[in-house]
Amino acid sequence: MLTSADYSALWLTFKVASLTTLILLILGTPVAWWLSNTQSRWKPLLSALIAVPLVLPPTVLGFYLLVLMGPEGALGRFTDAIGLGTLPFTFTGLVFASCIYSLPFVVQPLQNAFEAIGPRPLEVAATLRASPIDSFFSVTIPLAKPGFFTAGILGFAHTVGEFGVVLMIGGNIPDKTRLVSVQLYNHVEALEYTQAHWLAALLLGFSFLVLLVMYTVIKTPLRVQHV
């Protein structure tokens, strides 16, 4: 069965993924909202930037993040100056990198959900005396609920599955930065195939379950209702 090192990796993965998802839902919402409403000429640029982690090899992303967060990098100097030290090989660094890595998986479902709502419900809300901020909370967010659900699930599941980025910036420090995907790799390296089977099956089951729940709960994802 699972060893205590396995449990520790699982728990750490859960913490990183939860925190990342929470941060991304909070930061991704205004970004997705802006993207779904703007006609700015900067929109393609920002959309492309956000989508980069979808196609980039994770090791490339990890490499640049390592350089950026290192003692000579812009972010590294900043975090050092405010007394946080440098972020590579720390939990904070992992969460930061995961946020970049999983950003498109949260922003895109939210953006789709906001776009599917369309302008009409907000016009209705305005004629019923709701200010734009009021109607965002009382109309947009409730109507975009399936989008938030999808964004949360995809963001979480994708973060659990990260490997290349973690290896680059998280290293392999037990209890600190050793996530479950790296732990699986360690088992295979050490030819501990039984252990590897347990972890791999667990991750496979988790991924399948998550998607099953998503497709069961959101039977008609992001449907526009004109009632």
């Binding site: 009409r120 419900p121 016009e123 209705v124 809300a125 305005a126 004629t127 019923l128 005396r129 709701a130 200010s131 734009p132 009021d134 009382s138 109309v139 409730p142 109507l143 609920k145 209702q225 004109h226 009632v227």
Partner: peptide
Amino acid sequence: LPTHQRPIGYVFQEASLFPHLSALKNLQYG
């Protein structure tokens, strides 16, 4: 005046009720 500060009532072509609220909650919204 922005729309939400104009003392109007507006009935749209299709009813445009908020689908997440009951009829009563729709009435109470405004």
